[in-house]
Amino acid sequence: MNGRRETLTIGRYGKYGITLAVAREKLIDAKKLVDEGVSAAKEKKRAKAKTKSEGTFGELALRWLAESEMSDSTRDMRRHIVDRDLIPALGNYTLREVTGEDVR
Rank of each mutant, 00 (worst) to 15 (best):
A30T: 04
G11L: 04
L20E: 12
E36F: 01
K31E: 14
L86C: 07
K45D: 12
S73C: 03
R84I: 03
E67Q: 14
P88Y: 09
D83E: 15
L60F: 07
V38A: 02
G55A: 03
V82A: 13
S73M: 05
K52R: 12
K48T: 03
A89L: 08
R75A: 09
V82E: 11
L20V: 07
L95C: 12
T7C: 05
T74G: 00
S73E: 03
L62F: 04
I10Q: 06
L33A: 12
I87M: 11
K15L: 06
M1V: 08
S68W: 00
H80P: 00
L8D: 09
E59N: 02
V103I: 15
R4I: 01
E59S: 08
E97A: 14
V38M: 01
A89H: 06
T74C: 00
F57D: 05
D102S: 05
A61L: 14
I28Y: 05
A23M: 10
R96E: 06
A41R: 01
A41K: 01
L90M: 11
R4L: 12
A41G: 03
R4C: 05
L86I: 13
E6R: 13
G11D: 05
E101V: 09
G58V: 07
D72C: 00
L8Y: 09
W64Y: 15
L27C: 10
K32Q: 10
I28P: 07
R46L: 13
R4V: 02
K32S: 09
K45W: 03
L27K: 15
S68C: 04
K44L: 11
G91K: 06
E36D: 10
R63D: 02
D83R: 06
V103F: 02
R63T: 07
W64A: 14
M77C: 04
G91Q: 11
K45M: 11
A66K: 15
I87S: 12
T9C: 11
